[in-house]
Design a protein around this nucleic acid. Structure first.
Lengths: 297, 297
DNA sequence: GGTCGGCATAAGTTGTGCCTATGGCCCTCG
DNA sequence: CGAGGGCCATAGGCACAACTTATGCCGACC
């Protein structure tokens, strides 16, 4: 039978106290309790570890060997406690966030800045990524937290991951300078327009919405960079849709922006593995992202 | 509450196995048993250590910190087991023997030699000492085993120490060359002789015996070296008493030796702290000393 | 959509771990 | 030299902890 580490530590307490009775007093136990544990330990080991004398105990050679090991174990346990306390009090720790670009440009810097100001010991790893990759990274354990979005609801492919909504934002129609809005006909009025697509998910959403309006958009150009997209629109190469936050992060002076409820709303939120929001560093960043998002609203 | 080292090792098993269920299978436990221990550990720590996913578990940052510590603890426990096994199988270990001079000259070399031949890894520390100091050394933990003697019984001052008889031997009268034996009057015939004393305890014993015979011996000279004593006797400076083993170790060719039952018998045996005879290295030396002593008888 | 593998929870049973009580031993002090 | 106080071990009893079985939920995969 393998030796019980708790009894190993008890042996250490007894050796330090000098007698079984003294150790029992220090531990707040009774003498027989300690005595029985030692007897059991010696039975497991197969030989005596302490020699009992009238004035206390003295370790045998085997006892001294175990005591050296016990010191290491005790030190390790103590260090583990310190380490955990540091993580718990945010004197240390790490959180790896992967965010989609427009959020990375707006929400994230403020939240990370606030976290760094309060807890300089916490290390924040930041990476850009669109929702599918972001979710995969969290799932695989390569990231702790993802800032992701879905249209008209949480992003698809959540799987076992947890979804925490942060905010909803409208999706706007973005038109070249001079081009008139669709008017009462809504999206259908743009059936013949040239379209500029965004990221993969955004394009999918655009196609769905256009299908609901009765046409398939002709996507002439594509970029997942909302600055590039607006520049293309400003040059008259097509029309596009952009969520409010992308336009808040950057707005080309020449484009026209039209509110069009038929485009739906984009749901922005946090994704993490279940339970990960109880990890101190992650929780701290979550709290600051939530605060920042509700300040926007 | 301090974290339980057994649960720490369990965390390690789970992390290595990759899932709670797998760890339970490896341990021969059921899945809820492992699950409950982990839940308890996380409760003690105050946060999650493993994130549960559909395919198993992954450690959090705190979990990884604990796992590093757990590896050290596990290694230490394993090393402790190895160390104990080495002591148990006499591949290592140490025994410190303190013996009185005439035994050191006869019994001890044979026994130590036999032990060294069988178990070269065992280190034997040897020191000479008369019974009072020898017992004190064992009592204080400076020696593991004492070869000691007493007249007509175990040595005095054993206290809490254990006594293991090895052999009994007669005490002989040692006379200068040409001096006749005491005849039927026994010891009383030597009331007027000059006496040569041995070690402190031997002298005390001599005085007691003479008192029983009705006189107080005139001790002219003293030495605790049985060679010196015999040389003094051979030069005609007095008479003395010596136990058989001292005469077996060295016998001056000129002295006369007379068997005199009134001098009593010397009891030779081993002294150790209670339980010390269960320590492998000590037990091995004890066994060889016992074997050597009974071979003499 | 059914099956499988993962985990958590609830409830029951067994065993461990602690307690109190007692006795033996050695040492010390009156 | 006997009484008292220190040490320890053992026995018996009780309570909680630990492990069990039984069940349910969820996600992944065929």
């Amino acid at each position: 039978m393998a030796l019980d580490p708790r009894r190993l530590l008890l042996l250490r307490d007894v050796a330090r106290a000098g007698s079984i009775s003294a150790a029992a007093r220090e531990l707040g136990w009774t003498q027989p309790a300690v005595s029985q544990h030692l007897a059991r330990l010696e039975r497991d080991v197969g030989g005596p570890l302490l020699l009992r004398g009238p004035a206390g105990v003295a370790p045998t050679e085997a006892g001294e060997a175990l005591l050296r090991r016990a010191d290491v174990v005790a030190a390790e346990l103590h260090a583990a406690g310190e380490e955990l306390a540091a993580l718990h009090s945010l004197r240390g720790g790490r959180v790896r966030l992967v965010a989609f670009p427009s959020a990375a440009a707006t929400l994230v810097p403020d939240a990370v800045g606030a976290l760094a100001a309060d807890h300089p010991g916490v290390e924040v790893g930041l990476q850009e990524g669109e929702p599918p990759e972001a979710l995969a990274a969290v799932s695989a354990g390569d990231a702790d937290l993802a800032l992701a979005f879905g249209y008209d609801g949480p992003p698809a492919g959540l799987g076992a991951l947890a979804w925490r909504p942060l905010l909803e934002e409208p999706v706007h129609l973005v038109l070249p300078p001079g081009r008139r809005g669709p008017g009462r006909r809504g999206l259908a009025a743009l059936a013949d327009a040239d379209w500029i697509g965004g990221c993969v998910r955004c394009r999918t959403h655009l196609v769905e919405r256009c299908a609901a309006a009765g046409f398939e958009p002709a996507v002439r150009h594509s970029s997942d960079d909302y600055v590039v997209v607006q520049n293309l629109v400003a040059r008259g190469l097509g029309v596009t849709v952009l969520p409010a936050s992308a336009l808040a992060a950057y707005r080309h002076p020449d484009v026209a922006v039209v509110d069009l409820p038929a485009l739906g709303r984009r749901h922005v939120g946090l994704v993490h593995r279940p339970g990960a929001d109880a990890v101190p560093a992650t929780a701290a960043l979550v709290a600051r992202l939530v605060a920042r998002a509700s300040a926007d609203a």
